[in-house]
Design a binder for these strands. Structure first.
Lengths: 170, 170, 170, 170
DNA sequence: TTTT
DNA sequence: TTTT
């Protein structure tokens, strides 16, 4: 059908670190779990109430998987633009299940980090010290990798799709 | 949480007439099934391929339920703005199920009919027959006279929420 | 700056045929003038009132210029996604002027024709029959009438940016 | 015209404190100047380049003027949803001028603060002098310091338009 | 599971 | 004029 639009826009926080899966063909897929919340005052009780919605986000776009993996962490606030997709699958007992996800793939997808200062505990003055930018985000002690997001814009890659292999996207 | 956004924008066609349910309290809920499609040329085979996604839309907003009930029919093309919501329920065997829906409720929802059949000069039959509305898409063989919807905009009600009881919304 | 979004979404009708300009480098730019309207009932007089807003749209994206040129005509209804841009220029008397436009350029732009059956004169029954519907395109040879685009989707090109040179985009 | 949509979505930072004007009728209008920026790597020089776009935003919605006045300051990051409007006016020399603005008015407008600076415990310096930052809320009495707004959501008022006069909006 |  |  011509003439259709399928767009989701979310601004919310990650409930967990991104889950990265490697594909057979060398590519990657990143899954995010994003919370959006609303709060309102109950008309009857006058109490303040709040409801959180959890969104499953799946990133296929190459540039965006990299950004997600490099800069997003549990708690990060992001702007996301993708499309709705419902997937059918079978659980272990053979039952049909359906999952609706927000898919970032191809053009008209976007992912922008909105909290340049993660869970900075210390001083955040200056923003622009030696390394030039966000440091934040959970280089949380322990082993391994360690985070250190810096300049999180997923727009850039889209302008030069092939330009990220040998360069930082900013 | 402050600072979150949960928005879905769809432009697509109804796969069926709207399903209207009356609530105990006198209100109504309308369910729509909307298709969006994408087509692309397969890089390998060169064939044109197409994929259709079906969206379950639930309308609670009073003004919009009325518009949906009055002006939408199978085949209608609509612009919809709502938010994502996942609902948990039990099927007859007691199994947990989840359904993700696009909910139109409260402010920041929108529903606009896009196939006003603009400058219909000729026959409009089929649109307004017995059932009083668009049935979609030109099987316009048969009889039925008929009027047909005319000015289908769900914006108006939003500007004066109580103003529709005694007036056509356009 | 990281972390910003600049997005405009319009659904409206062309006030004129697209204006196509050829660039020195062989490229093209297409300008559209798009009307959106709102109507509401005046709270005081009870009269129905309407206000039309005109939007200047500028298309740089190669795939979309082609779609615009080929399928859009005065009166066409389109879905457009672009970004706001204000341009400074001097009028003939040297006065500074500013124009704000909706620019379609690069990723995250979209243009989708919403009235697939423009001024179809012939039968369009069925959607699925032999030719299955929209055939459209460019019979704009000679004089007179012109136009009548029908199967207008600018999504396709985006999926295979180079794929349109030798093929109809649907 | 039925069937049109006019929507602008911005995520950006305020270049200045909000400008509040009182209307004859007791209402208020708030003007914001919001920057969005893009950066990309120049294909030729390889340099990183950046372009900032400034948007004039005008808030008429009662609930949103209050939120803007209370919680926004120079530097604040906001999510904004409004519509495009071009206004004609005469400058002092009688010349016609046009200004295009993003108007927040009525339903389908939104304003959400994105840098809650949450539970700033420490220093907030840098944000604009004197008192540094959001003071927000209910110029609650007397003195000094000021606390740092925290829960800035413009959604709430929309759910209960009249509910803010005697309560904090969150 | 996030955030406020 | 912001932000990085």
């Amino acid at each position: 059908m011509a003439g259709s639009v399928n767009k989701v826009i979310l601004v919310g926080n990650l409930g967990n670190d991104p889950e990265v899966r490697n594909l057979p063909n060398g590519g990657k897929v990143v899954n995010l779990s994003i919370a959006t919340s609303e709060s309102w005052k109950d008309r009857n009780t006058g109490e303040r109430r709040e409801k959180t919605e959890w969104h499953r986000v799946v990133i296929f776009s190459e540039g965006l998987t990299r950004v997600a993996e490099s800069y997003l962490r549990k708690g990060s606030k992001v702007y996301i633009e993708g499309q709705l997709q419902t997937r059918k699958w079978q659980d272990q007992s053979g039952q049909d299940k359906y999952s609706t996800e927000v898919v970032l793939q191809g053009f008209n997808s976007n992912l922008t980090l909105l909290d340049g200062r993660g869970d900075n505990s210390g001083d955040n003055s200056g923003y622009g010290g030696g390394d030039g930018g966000f440091r934040g985000v959970r280089d949380n002690g322990g082993g391994g990798g360690g985070g250190g997001a810096r300049r999180p814009s997923a727009n850039a890659p889209a302008f030069e799709p092939g330009g990220m292999d040998d360069d930082i996207p900013f």
